[in-house]
Design a protein around this nucleic acid. Structure first.
Lengths: 234, 234, 234, 234
DNA sequence: GATGAATGAGTTTTCATTCAT
DNA sequence: TATGAATGAAAACTCATTCAT
């Protein structure tokens, strides 16, 4: 059933306005937080009447949930793009981790506001939403656990509790991203450097130096501890 | 200036009631979240009148802030108990990390509700509180960065960006604690095992097996990847 | 920029409703006094919801201030209509005083409730409002002082402290109006008689009889004190 | 029935504390107004506990009423001291008016705070109190009307509506006192000068100059309008 | 589709007063 | 007498949502 051109145009305009409202909402939610955000501020930003809002969204909370949902979907999609198939060595692993890490980082940095909203507000809005978020983390953990198990089977990582490992990995990434997006602490660090640190820490903890990415705080002049100094467990 | 016995008794009763109210508030905040929590629920739980609440606290928000502040203080105090002085080897380091990790874990698990409230709600209450939390993370990061720098100078960890490293460490710990406290995912895992994973991941990433702590998901029977299979960077 | 007919209609309805609410508020404030008056009583009287009130006014206090402000403005406007230009004799003066007096009296009696509210409540609501009232009295006094000064220069009134004179005049008028509006004491006295008394008292104090306006309490039959008996100061 | 010395001492201490509290209340009522005044502020000022207040007064409102009542009584007593007996000439009248006027003025200025409270707040506290005040004004008016009637019978003042005259007189006095006590406008004017103006205005309106008391605003250098210029009604 | 006026439920907080100690 | 902790009623105001135009 082909739609009429007229209907299509209408639909396009509808979608456009919907996006406008959603974008405005993201900005307002980011600025004030969910609870202090007012629907009146959102519609004012777009320049439409209060009632118009409800032509496009069921309500404030549903819109917030949608924003969070969009965000979660982007993250899952990105992480799911992992391709374990061709990974045969630790080099391959590092490269693949770096690839996915960069994708994820770019994704999150490209949607800074949503990212910040997610970390700051999402858990404090409504029980239903918490369910959604819980489900997201479960999915993520399952995916990572599975990956890790595969890697372990291939002898690429040591055996351990992969659920805990998954949590640790998620936490590392999350916190680093938060620092950058929410607080701006790591703004002057290249995303690449961040990803390098994440990947290397996953691979070798604090065993290996991460050279070129180093910045302030690294004792450059001082004699670097040699690898030899690192007593690897037999 | 010795207080009269009468005054002392009064003060003691005052403190007791204050604690009662605070504890009730923690439970209510945990159950409903800050915004859905009602002062009326708190006083009902303690069995006092509405007005009594305001004899002990300036208001709902101030009480919440105090609860969070208590929490943050406990964490900082615990982390600050780190003693880098006598650490001369990676073994020492592992032991000290384990010691502090266990303390912190116990601390957090002993105040599960506050911990959960902090992770879920704290950022979504009020800008002033966000300031406090921001300051907390800055303190924590500064402490960890300094530790890492010392460790590096002693050749115990490799050089890298210690700010990023600090964030990663904080994130790892946070996420694992959250999983346990907020979602109950890791409830059947011994705190000791959790700490072992955190410490080992900090030290060697995924290079080394964490044996006895292993649980579901770990391919016990399968041939373990040997250390030899792990290509350490030259 | 001509407004659409639709917009005009809306605005008209808006103004109407606003007036309705203000009028209801005047009645409630008059009946209960500012502090005992409830917003709920006001909206009930008009038959709208509680929230509607706040579409038209910032709050209870702001509405009260507006009512008082309206009142003060009417008074000042009336008093400012004084025309000293053509006054050359005491007869002229008496006529002009009578004219302005009647206008003011009518104005106040036409807004009895506001007048009563002003005298009873206005000073006990808020410091900001007291400022406004203070300014009102200052304006009034300045106007009257100036008038008196002009009259004195023309030889129509004797020299004295015109600030005190202004205060006395204001007080005379106020009290007489209060008696009538707040207490209903002088309800059966014609406004004209009231004004005659005010004017004559301003002009000659208790020197001259005010005949036809006399009512109960005046010893009609008794021998009137003759003017001769009045020892005018040399 | 003679009280024991012990009981007397107790009663004295009681009265003292009661007065202390009342005085503190006057200051607080003056500073904040009745509605914004807090019982807690009053007891704090005296340095006793909250409960103590209720050992001496039934409550906030009753105390306020008592303060107002004290005030009204002082005024009535003063005005009632009028002695019309020996007044046979306008000179006598002027002297007696001046005497009473000075007494009243001193009375009010000696209790500035109560006076200010009365004018600003008294009508806006409670209906019962308004009754009291109404009664006060009725008493005052009756007294003045009677006085005026006597004066008229003796040929000392012209016939007119003595109720209106009483109101005018009360208003004149009130307003002048208010200006001084509430706003401080006439602070640099001698009480004596104020009373002179009041008395002269009562006697001759604006017919006669009030010389030595004149201050700023009086055209001293300019030719004074002569009495001859004042066309007295035949 | 768009508007924006109207709705009204819902909650924190204050403070005069009481009363057990 | 004095204390001060406890009481609890009471009210202004907000804002998400609706619906007649």
């Amino acid at each position: 059933m082909p739609m009429s051109a007229r209907h299509q145009r209408r639909q396009a305009r509808r979608d456009e306005r919907r996006d406008e409202l959603k974008q405005a909402a993201i900005e307002i939610f980011h600025e004030h937080g969910y609870h202090a955000a007012r629907v009146s501020q959102i519609v004012k930003k777009v320049g439409v009447a209060q009632g118009t809002f409800y032509l496009y969204f069921e309500g404030k909370q549903q819109l917030f949930a949608e924003i969070i949902s969009d965000f979660l979907e982007r993250v899952v999609t990105t992480v799911a793009s992992w391709e374990p198939g061709a990974i045969d060595s630790r080099e391959d692993l590092r490269d693949e981790l770096t690839r996915v890490g960069l994708m994820l980082t770019h994704e999150l940095l490209n949607h800074e506001l949503s990212t910040a909203i997610f970390f700051n507000e999402a858990m404090a809005v409504a029980p239903e939403l918490n369910e959604l978020i819980r489900h997201f983390y479960e999915t993520l953990q399952a995916m990572l656990s599975d990956f890790n198990r595969i890697l372990c089977q291939r002898g690429l990582i040591a055996p351990m509790d992969f659920t805990i490992l998954a949590s640790m990995t998620i936490g590392m990434v999350e916190r680093v991203i938060m620092e950058r997006v929410v607080y701006g602490t790591l703004n002057e660090v290249e995303p690449r450097a961040i990803v390098d640190h994440l990947v290397m820490h996953f691979l070798t903890g604090t065993l290996e130096a991460i050279g070129p990415a180093s910045r302030a705080g690294v004792p450059e002049d001082e004699e670097q501890p040699t690898d030899a100094a690192l007593p690897l467990k037999a």
